[in-house]
Design a protein around this nucleic acid. Sequence first.
DNA 1: TTTGACTTGTTATGATGTAACATGAATAAG
DNA 2: CTTATTCATGTTACATCATAACAAGTCAAA
Lengths: 143, 143
Amino acid sequence: MLDQARDRLAANGARLTPVRQRTLEILLESHRAMGAYEVLDRLAAEGFGRQPPVAYRALEFLVEHGLAHRLQRLNAFAACLHPGHDHAPAFLICRECDMLAELPAAPVRDALTELAAESGFQVERATIEALGLCPACADAARP
Amino acid sequence: MLDQARDRLAANGARLTPVRQRTLEILLESHRAMGAYEVLDRLAAEGFGRQPPVAYRALEFLVEHGLAHRLQRLNAFAACLHPGHDHAPAFLICRECDMLAELPAAPVRDALTELAAESGFQVERATIEALGLCPACADAARP
DNA sequence: TTTGACTTGTTATGATGTAACATGAATAAG
DNA sequence: CTTATTCATGTTACATCATAACAAGTCAAA
């Protein structure tokens, strides 16, 4: 896995330095979603730097090169535009103006639940969010 | 909209107090995704408390009662289990053990992109994450 | 009208993330 | 080989997001 990673990086002119490699190893070994500070603790314990940017930079690098993923958690709020029905919509968030749209996403959600069930995973809550351009900002961006 | 909200709450034995109502109004007026501290600034400027819990409590209340949504952002990392193909999988995250699974989600993603396109929204990146129980933890939970 | 549940506010702290700068290592140009 | 340049790593300091624990006030019902 590491050799494979090194090759991919070399092809892109990027290097798998010690911190980066160790960071990747830590993620691979854990097989879990890890917070940046958890990774940082491990790195620091092994003699690497103990300040947040050390971990964040290594992680960002791995994500940039397709060797790791960044997962999500809570961070912003918006009024529900269609209260009343028990709904769990998908969100469209404009990266320019932060405009928010809610999309009925029951089919998408059901597909996901079913797909997960095939591997024995019980979905309790699903997050479906898209980042992109709303019609207005897409128009404004066009010449 | 507010009357409707008040009715819904009354039916549940919950009250739309001034802070809560104003918080909902702020979200509704903005039509955007807002950070909790942004909401807090508005509340404080209007004579409500100026400490974080004031906003977080009101927001949490609205979310609990289906009047607002909580959106997401970056917060955790995991090794990519299938590097190489240009892929943007869905994630299954076990809430018990943080185990992570990647699911090929191209169909789900395409459905979302198409659905969004119907309202003129251009999807650039989509986040599909499910929280629930992995098979092992589901077994452990069973008696 | 007093009890008890709930609401609002506070202080304090924890958790997450980034900007800006100094130093050191690797690579490429001469 | 040596120098110049780029890239990596580490630091300090700070910005942003979130919650725990407690005190005081409000409201409805017994």
